[in-house]
Simulated scan of single mutants.
Amino acid sequence: MAGIAAIGAAVAGDLPLQMPNAGTPAPQMPAEDDMGRPKPLELPKDVEAKLAGVDKAKVDFLKSGVTGRYVEKDALFARIRTGKPEEISAYIDAMQALHAQVEFKAGRDVAAIPLDTRSPWFNAWKARRPNSMDPKRDVGPIELTRYIGGWGGGFATFAGAPVAMTPEDLKAGKVDVAIVGAPLDMGSGWRNAIDGPRAMRMTGGAAGNDMYSMINPNAALKIVDYGDIAIDQNSTERSVDHVREMVAEIARTGAIPIVIGGDHSLEYPNVAAAA
């Protein structure tokens, strides 16, 4: 909990955003996974021998490492080892042609795809529903379970916790921890990461006794599910800006915000601290 508290304090402005003593640094992307800077490919000696009669520019293309985006290196080496010179040359030609199509080319490709700022729905994805449109109720967390003695019969929430919808709910309920979902999908290659927060709710994560400390977080802390943060699936930048706004909204009430992100870019400690 100390690490989470430090992140919450950083969000609220009480600590610097950089935490040099963080126990787990953000993972670094391997060089071969960086689309802008592919790792050079080392050719085995027998493969280089098969390429002896191939144009040097084509061999340099192979050695640049960009072919790793289109074919796994062992499959590439196998194709060269078993191919005839004309087949190898045609194979490299095909990869070069593909590379020319997928890479950005100034004058042919648009450097940025602007959003339609003329749309009357431009900010509708994050516009708040006015409280006056909702049924009147007392402020504070809302219990969604049907039974007193346990879960079930209600709606799935983070840690089986009650729901809070507004900062006023957090303050009235003297909430310690507000868990909020951020179902961003883009940075993961659209692999259904958007369902991450929903899956965490369904599994009841963070509820019950912790097997290491033998502490029940729900018994020691006032925890609520603060719903999901609105996401613009057309813009990571706009989405992350709104995530920052919502995390700050929670932190200003004195509660510790915990973001359950569907997308890996929202789960790294440095991103959470920067929020």
Rank of each mutant, 00 (worst) to 15 (best):
N21E: 15
D93K: 04
N270I: 10
A124V: 02
N123I: 01
V102P: 00
A251G: 07
A97L: 12
A275T: 11
G68A: 07
L41S: 01
G107K: 13
D60G: 05
P25N: 11
M35Q: 06
P85M: 06
P269D: 13
D34W: 08
I229P: 07
P40I: 04
E86Q: 12
N216W: 05
W151E: 10
A251E: 07
N216Q: 04
K45E: 12
G150C: 02
I4T: 13
H99G: 03
I194E: 07
S119L: 04
P20L: 08
F122T: 00
M35L: 11
Y226F: 15
A219I: 12
M186C: 07
A172H: 08
P120D: 08
L144E: 05
K171T: 10
K171Q: 07
N123M: 03
V224C: 11
M211T: 11
W121I: 12
A94E: 15
L221Q: 10
I92T: 10
Y268L: 06
D232S: 05
D263K: 06
K126E: 07
I142Q: 15
G262Q: 04
V163F: 15
N131K: 13
V71R: 12
G13P: 04
I231F: 05
A164H: 11
E32N: 10
A159F: 14
L76E: 03
R81V: 01
N131T: 08
I215A: 09
A272H: 03
A275W: 10
G36Y: 09
D138H: 11
D55M: 01
E87L: 00
Q233F: 05
P162N: 09
M214D: 13
G13K: 06
A2V: 10
G140C: 02
W125V: 00
P141A: 04
D109G: 04
G23Q: 13
V243I: 14
L184Q: 08
V240Y: 13
P141S: 04
D210S: 01
S188M: 10
G36H: 09
G23S: 12
I194T: 03
S132I: 08
G262E: 04
G150A: 09
L43A: 05
A172R: 12
V11L: 08
P114W: 11
K84F: 05
D33A: 14
A2R: 14
A156Y: 12
A75S: 12
L144K: 11
V102W: 01
H242K: 07
E249R: 09
P38Q: 05
A57D: 15
G187T: 13
D93E: 09
E86G: 00
R118W: 07
V54Y: 05
V243N: 02
D60S: 11
L98N: 08
D138E: 15
A12L: 03
R198V: 05
M19H: 14
P183R: 09
A274E: 13
A111Q: 14
M165I: 02
K45F: 05
R79K: 14
P257Q: 11
Q233I: 02
G187I: 02
L184H: 07
R191T: 11
D169W: 10
P120I: 09
G3H: 15
D93R: 07
M211I: 15
E168G: 13
A273Y: 15
P162C: 06
P135T: 12
A255L: 04
